[in-house]
């Protein structure tokens, strides 16, 4: 018995069973066959274990939001910009604050750092959604509040008549790291993670030491301290990756 071909009926059948991922398939080759040759590939236990370890490590590296090189870049940036500011305030009696050029270098360096962090984070987070994405939005809002609070309090100090040594010295050189350190300690405690907790404690310690060092040396202490802290964390992350 011959069955007449009914292309209208057949096309309806095809549309009914339209693959769920058709839009993604459209991005590739629609006529491509999928032989799945690897189904027949003999994979020994050792080779499988190696492939599993290799794939896991590669994936973790690609999802890593704070790769070691980012921390090393941060170390160099902060050492440079804080060093420039320290050079501009060295020998000031009375303390007046950083020069315009030094401030430009400071803010320029911070902008470069922020842009670098955003680029790296976007690359790591690309395509990832879910609980951690929601957490990050919350943390971002928190950071904005902290920056606003820090800046507003500096204004309050100025308004209260605090000296230049405090408003443009100790506060931006050292107290800023107390704010940042508190934030990281809080993140570490909430997430029960030791890296942000340790980094937060380091930042707070640097801020306190810098505050006691005064408005001039505080810039030097913070620059070296933050640089060493970030570089050390970079080294720790490299060692942990290799372990």
């Amino acid at each position: 018995m011959q069955i007449a071909l009914d292309f209208v009926w057949q096309s309806r059948l095809t549309l009914w069973h339209k693959p769920k991922w058709e839009s993604e398939m459209d991005q590739g080759n629609k006529t491509e066959k999928t032989p799945l040759a690897d189904e027949d590939e003999q994979l020994g236990p050792r080779a499988a274990a190696e492939l599993l370890a290799q794939t896991t490590n590669q994936a973790k590296r690609q999802f890593d939001e704070w790769p070691p090189y980012l921390l090393f870049i941060g170390a160099v940036i902060f050492l440079f910009v804080y060093g420039v500011v320290w050079m501009s305030v060295r020998g000031q009696h009375p303390y007046l604050g950083p020069s315009g050029g030094a401030l430009a270098a400071l803010y320029g360096g911070i902008v470069v750092w922020i842009i670098t962090v955003v680029v790296v984070l976007q690359r790591a987070r690309g395509g990832v959604s879910g609980r951690s994405a929601q957490q990050r939005r919350t943390y971002s809002a928190g950071w904005i509040v902290i920056v606003l609070a820090y800046s507003t309090f500096q204004g309050a100090l100025y308004h209260a008549g605090a000296s230049h040594a405090i408003v443009y010295g100790v506060y931006p050189a050292s107290v800023v790291w107390l704010f940042a350190g508190t934030a990281f300690v809080t993140i570490g405690v909430i997430r029960e993670q030791s890296p942000p907790l340790a980094l937060g404690i380091a930042f707070m310690a640097i801020g306190l030491v810098g505050a006691f060092a005064g408005p001039v040396v505080g810039w030097l202490v913070s620059g070296i301290g933050i640089s060493v802290a970030l570089a050390s964390f970079g080294v720790v992350r490299i060692v942990k990756r290799r372990a």
Partner: peptide, 10 residues
């Protein structure tokens, strides 16, 4: 390799 609760685009 993703944290629990996270998903990845195709």
């Amino acid at each position: 390799a993703l944290p629990v609760g996270d998903n990845l685009s195709f």
